[in-house]
Design a protein around this nucleic acid. Structure first.
Length: 562
RNA sequence: GCGCUCUUAGCUCAGCUGGAUAGAGCAAUAGCCUUCUAAGCUAUAGGCCGCUGGUUCGAGUCCAGCAGGGCGCACCA
């Protein structure tokens, strides 16, 4: 609806320009807002104030011209008035709202989806955890935010590729293999033979016993048979990586998070991408040798100091394959790429972008885009939770899903802006009370389903494709408010996707649930008045559908009974 | 010390790429179940938007400085 209002303004501006009543062209961007105060209409626009100076007219005078060209907006508006210093306030006609309600039914499960992305390709990389242990709570927030951003982008018309990048060959993985080997040989972490920087978690024992038992492991991107030989470090490495990848896959599946592409850091060495990048950076004159190492002059591109590319021991630092990886993304045709990461890795942003600029291969400066999430603190009964038996030092994603459930975990992880810190209160997430926003929203859906069960027993049902006049009796303030909120879903999806901010949709859902509960308490749906009953049933049918569509975009279920 | 980020009601947080009188939930207080799920609703109260300047018709929102919290600052990833 907001977009339709904006379109009305655009058209009016062009008409006014054609009639030579307004001169400035191009006009400032048309921004349509929703006033807090209902007296200011359903929507408002500040374009007259924005354009006033260039037009050399008073804002209210500009507004008057625009309004004249809008008229009643082809029946969309009941009134349209100038207010305050030059706002244009739009009052949408009730019939237009009723029409919008009918369109929700027509669109069905697709209601809320938009064509904004125009099927353009976008790639989202998230989680990207190395296979050295189970996914922890930080990965969990990354998984929830990244996955929801994918769903939001998909819902607003983008062609999304979900990608997971990991390192299966570096020093970390060697430490992993050595740790598993040590466990195979019965060496404990307090033993002096225990490897330096070894992984001490209990899960390493599981890997070693599975390896010794010659088990087979299948992950989403690997199939490995254990040799069982504790002296074969390469075999252990292969197996350990596959084993932990499978564990991560299982955790992610339990979280309903899926990927289209897995990219291995080692593949970038094997296919020559890393060497090619090093060569190109050198050819472009951005590298130099110093202290036995090869450096990249990232300071040319805004970094606060230059970075080592190749250590004196001959190995590349991690960010070289990172640059190669991102060029690879670019070459795959992703002119839009989003990386979701923990904010503790934010220093890589400047480095990767600098490397890409140094390649001088047509990549724009701000590419790729980043979404960084802040830390998560887990609380239980007012106390911070830190220890997990399995991992030794942190709370795993699996622990959380097992205890509070997938829906609540997902909702809690995304209900705050990514760049604000999150307190995850386990007790609250498990609570079945209105304090818990997940239950509050899901309960609204279940409650409506229950009404329909009751209505069915009394012989009522929501009409299929009623006429405008059938639902025109839905004109109390509560009913209209509910309809307006339903109609706002597509705009909310677009906003959330545009800003990579899933929490906007959780706030929308809470507001919608609140609006419904309020309506429910004030009005009886099933009554003697059969025309009103069926009209209200129709409204609730659309409400349930909208709740479900929005929850689905968040990857959260809409239970029919609670 | 440098970089990024955050600071809004007692608590947890929104505030829609600068808009009209700053919102919600919890906690507090007072109410609402013989009636479609009380896992719900209604009402009251609660504010120097960290501080100081600046930009303009207009600032919680943008800019600068200051204070405080978090995260980074490796020839780790």
């Amino acid at each position: 609806m907001r977009q339709r209002i904006a379109a009305l303004v655009e058209t009016a501006l062009l008409a006014a320009a054609a009639a030579e009543e307004l001169v400035a062209s191009p006009f400032p961007a048309v921004i349509v807002g929703t006033p807090v105060n209902p007296d200011h209409g359903d929507f408002s626009c500040n374009i007259a104030m924005q354009a006033a100076k260039a037009e050399r007219k008073a804002p209210r005078q500009v507004a008057e011209i625009i309004i004249r060209h809008i008229g009643n907006g082809n029946g969309l508006l009941s009134t349209c008035e100038i207010a305050g210093p030059g706002f244009i306030n739009f009052f949408v006609a009730p019939s237009a709202w009723h029409q919008a309600l009918l369109e929700i039914e027509t669109q069905g499960g697709a209601f809320g989806r938009t064509a904004t992305g125009a099927c353009q390709k976008v790639q989202v990389e998230f989680v990207s955890a190395n296979p050295t242990g189970p996914l922890h709570i930080g990965h969990g927030r990354g998984a929830a935010i990244g996955d929801t951003i994918c769903r939001l982008l998909g819902a607003s018309g983008w062609d999304v590729t979900r990608e997971f990048y990991y390192n299966d060959a570096g020093q970390q993985i060697t430490n992993l293999a050595l740790s598993v080997q040590a466990r195979c040989l019965g060496i404990e972490p307090d033993d002096e033979r225990w490897p330096v920087d070894g992984y001490q978690g209990e899960y390493i024992k599981d890997v070693s016993s599975s390896y010794l038992a010659k088990e087979t492991v299948d992950s989403d991107d690997r199939h490995v048979l254990a040799l069982g030989d504790p002296n074969n470090l390469d075999a252990i490495r292969e197996f350990a990586v596959a084993y932990l990848r499978r564990e991560q896959d299982l955790d992610l599946k339990a979280f309903d998070v899926h990927f289209d592409v897995f990219t291995l850091e080692s593949s970038l060495y094997e296919n020559g991408n890393v060497e090619a990048v090093v060569k190109q950076l050198g050819a472009n004159g951005h590298t130099y040798e110093q202290d036995g190492a090869l450096w990249l002059r990232t300071t040319t591109f805004g970094d606060d100091k230059d970075r080592v590319m190749r250590k004196s021991d001959g190995a590349y630092t991690y960010f070289v394959p990172d640059i190669a990886y991102h060029r690879n993304k670019w070459e795959r045709g992703f002119t839009r790429v989003v990386n979701e990461q923990g904010s503790d890795h934010h220093s890589t942003i400047t480095r990767v972008r600098a490397g890409l600029q140094a390649l001088n291969c047509g990549i724009p400066q701000g590419w790729p885009e980043y979404v960084l999430h802040q830390m998560v603190t887990v609380m239980r009964g007012g106390e911070e939770v830190k220890i997990s038996k399995r991992a030794g030092s942190y709370v795993t994603l699996r622990d959380l899903i097992d205890e509070v459930g997938r829906d609540a975990t997902r909702f809690f992880f995304i209900m705050r802006k990514p760049d604000s810190q999150l307190v995850f209160d386990i007790e609250l997430a498990k609570e079945q009370s209105p304090d818990n926003p997940v239950y509050y929203v899901q309960y609204a859906h279940a409650r409506i389903c229950s009404i329909f069960e009751n209505a069915g027993e009394k012989g009522f049902m929501a009409p299929l494709q009623p006429s405008l006049s059938d639902i025109a009796i839905l004109n109390t303030p509560e009913e209209l408010q509910l309809i307006k909120l339903l109609a706002a879903l597509p705009d909310t999806v677009d906003d959330s996707a545009l800003h990579f901010e899933p929490h906007r949709l959780t706030y929308y859902l809470t507001e919608l649930a609140c609006c419904f509960h309020s309506f429910y308490n004030k009005n009886r749906v099933i009554s003697e008045d059969s025309a009103l009953t069926t009209a209200r049933l129709y409204l609730l049918k659309r409400t349930a559908q909208t709740l479900k569509n929005a929850l689905t975009i968040l990857g959260i279920s809409a239970p029919e009974r609670m």
